[in-house]
C-alpha cells in the first residue's frame, strides 16, 4: 500500500490523533495518543504492521525537544511506515509499546540509557549499554564528558604528543 492509502485507513480508524507529512512519508503523533495509534497499526486488518524494524531516539540539537522515530513494516502486505514522536527535554516521557512489539523492549531501554526518555509502562526500564551507576545521558547534544569514572581518567592523555 502506498503512503496515501495508509493515511486514508488511519484517518478512518484514529482521526485527529496524528499529523501526516506527505513528502517525508511519516506521521507525527503526540505522546498521549501514541498507544491508541500503535494498537491500530498492529491490529488493523488492512495495515497489519507486524514487525517493528527500528526504534531510535534523536536529539536535533536546535530545539528543546527530544524525539523517537519508529519504523514499522508489514511482512505480508509489504508496506512501511515511519512514526515520529517528540517530547520536551525537561520532562521526557513517552508510553511504551514493549508489550505490543517485543522488539521495542531492548530498543526502548537503549533510548532511555542514551537519551533519558522515560517509557511509561515498560516492564523493566533500566540502563542497558552503560554501567548502572553512570551519570548523564551521553547522546544528548549538551552532554559534557565526566572527568573520571571510578577513579579512572576518561580523557586521553595527550601530553606526550604536544
Amino acid at each position: 500500500m502506498e503512503f496515501s492509502q495508509i493515511k486514508k485507513v488511519l484517518d478512518i480508524r484514529c482521526s485527529g490523533l496524528f499529523e501526516a507529512e506527505i513528502d517525508r512519508h511519516t506521521i507525527r503523533v503526540l505522546p498521549e495518543n501514541w498507544l491508541t495509534v500503535a494498537k491500530v497499526l498492529k491490529a488493523d486488518a488492512d495495515l497489519t504492521f507486524d514487525s517493528l524494524m527500528c526504534l531510535s531516539g534523536f536529539d536535533l540539537g536546535d530545539s528543546d525537544m527530544l524525539g523517537i522515530a519508529c519504523h514499522f513494516y508489514s511482512m505480508d502486505k509489504g508496506h512501511m511506515l515511519e512514526v515520529i514522536i517528540e517530547t520536551p527535554k525537561k520532562n521526557p516521557t513517552i508510553p511504551s509499546i514493549a508489550n505490543i512489539w517485543r522488539t521495542a523492549d531492548w530498543h526502548e531501554r537503549e533510548v532511555y540509557d542514551l537519551y533519558g526518555i522515560i517509557f511509561e509502562g515498560h516492564p523493566d526500564l533500566k540502563r542497558i549499554l552503560l554501567p548502572d551507576d553512570w551519570e548523564g545521558h551521553p547522546l544528548r547534544k549538551d552532554y559534557v564528558q565526566a572527568e573520571t569514572y571510578h577513579g579512572i581518567t576518561i580523557k586521553k592523555d595527550k601530553t606526550y604528543w604536544e
Binding site: 527500528c54 531510535s56 534523536f58 517485543r102 531492548w106
Partner: peptide, 26 residues
C-alpha cells in the same frame, strides 16, 4: 538498518545503526 538524519552538512545529525544481533540476542 541505518537511520540517518541529515541537515545538509558534511556531518550527520544522527546516525543510528539497527544491528541484527541486538534483536537476535533478546
Amino acid at each position: 538498518g541505518y537511520y540517518i538524519i541529515s541537515d545538509g552538512k558534511n556531518i550527520p545529525v544522527r546516525l543510528k545503526m539497527r544491528s541484527p544481533a541486538f534483536c537476535n540476542l533478546s
